[in-house]
Every structure is written in C-alpha cells, then in structure tokens.
C-alpha cells in the first residue's frame, strides 16, 4: 500500500499541457475553475440585484469598510499569484528548489491575507457591524467568508505542490500547474469581490 498513498500521484494524467496545444496544467482543473466561476458569478449577480433594490443602504454600509485594507489585501494576493507563476516557470526549467522557495513565500502571503481578513472582521464586529446587521453586511461576510474558505483550500493545493517539488520521484508538472491554477483562481475571485464590495458606488 505504501507507494500508492502518494498524494496526486504523477502517473495520473498524461502531461497534456506543456506546449502550445492543450490547456495548461491538467484540463481537469479548468473544469473546476469554470464551475466555480459560474457559481461565483451567480453570487455577484444576486449581490448586484439586492444592491440595486436598496442602493442607499448599500452605499452607507460600504462607507464603513476600510478601502485601504481592501487594497492591501488585493496587492498581497497579486504578489502571491506572481510568485506562484514564477514558481511554475522555475519548476518547468528544472529549478525545483527555487520554485519551492517561491511557493513558500506565496503561502506566507496567503497566511497574511487570512490574518488581515480576521483582523478586518474583528474590527467590523467591534464597531457593531455583524453578519445580520443589514443586507450589505450579510453579503460582505458571506462573500469574504466563502472566499477565505477558498484560500484555505488553496493552502492544501499549494501544500501538494510543495510536496511534489520536494523530491524528484514525486514530481508531476501537470499537478504542480493545477495547484498554481487553483491559487490564481482564488486571486481573481478576490479581484472581483474587491471591486464589488469596496469600490463600486
């Protein structure tokens, strides 16, 4: 049983996407990205619908958010995405140690993101804005919360990437790219959430 308990074993999918032909990573992870994009799009449309029914309440509540913290969050995630993209490139060129370093740093930034979200939530709760305070804050806690759950999933994916980078016999470039693609998805979901919750009027 020993050998078979390796996570995401390399023999799984024939390496489909290193050249210009197939999709990057595994085609399978793109199904997930597409489906998640669909689900989140439905959340965004519902948010905008409720927003347009009560624009004053949403505007007033949006003003209670800390835009600067939101920008900081975005930049943190953008840097981590950049590091992961560099890591994938390094792994592709066989510089696995360098790739591992990049992914570690990206995970560190992910932790920073989660920490700053916890801080932001606790500040909001102290200021008296809770999940059931009003419709805007329901959406705020829901969207940021479900996104943080995705960040936690992202840690699992990056953990698998790190594990695979760790030893030559475990490596599989498609799996490494699949983990990276999940992390980038977490990033782009935040980009849209940031615009909808913090910036739009």
């Amino acid at each position: 049983m020993g050998a078979s308990s390796l996570p995401l074993s390399p023999h799984r999918s024939p390496s489909r996407g290193e050249g210009c032909h197939g999709l990057p990573g595994q085609a399978d992870i793109w199904y997930l990205v597409g489906f998640e994009a669909l689900v989140f799009s439905s959340y965004f449309v519902v948010y905008l619908l409720y927003r347009s029914w009560n624009p004053d309440l949403f505007l007033q509540s949006q003003q209670q958010l800390n835009q600067n913290l939101g920008v900081l969050n975005t930049v943190i995630l953008l840097i981590s995405s950049w590091l992961v993209a560099r890591g994938v490139q390094a792994a592709r060129e066989g510089r696995h140690e360098a790739a591992g370093k990049q992914v570690w740093m990206a995970m560190g930034l992910g932790l920073l993101f989660v920490g700053s979200k916890l801080l932001e939530w606790s500040l909001k709760i102290q200021a008296g804005f809770e999940f059931s305070t009003n419709r805007f804050f329901s959406f705020y806690y829901f969207l940021t919360g479900i996104h943080v759950v995705h960040v936690l999933f992202g840690f699992v994916f990056l953990g698998v990437v790190l594990y695979q980078l760790g030893g030559p016999r475990r490596r599989s470039q498609p799996v490494i790219e699949a983990g990276a693609i999940f992390w980038h998805m977490v990033d782009f979901l935040w980009v849209m959430i940031f615009a909808l919750l913090y910036l739009m009027r």
């Binding site: 078979s4 995401l8 689900v39 829901f142 999933f153």
Partner: peptide
C-alpha cells in the same frame, strides 16, 4: 478520487467535489 491511481473517476469529478462541499458550508446562514 484525487489519491487514486486506478482512474476509477476522472480528476475533474474529484475537483467538482470541492464545489459540492462548499455548498454545505454556504447553507449555514
């Protein structure tokens, strides 16, 4: 499914489980 090497299920279905799993979180409110 994700650990399996016998290709009983395609990987995309393994990933789709994440979506189903998240719906169980979403119902908490």
């Amino acid at each position: 499914i994700l650990l399996d090497r016998n290709r009983v299920f395609p990987l995309w279905f393994g990933y789709l489980n994440i979506c189903n799993l998240l719906t169980e979180v979403v119902v908490a409110p």
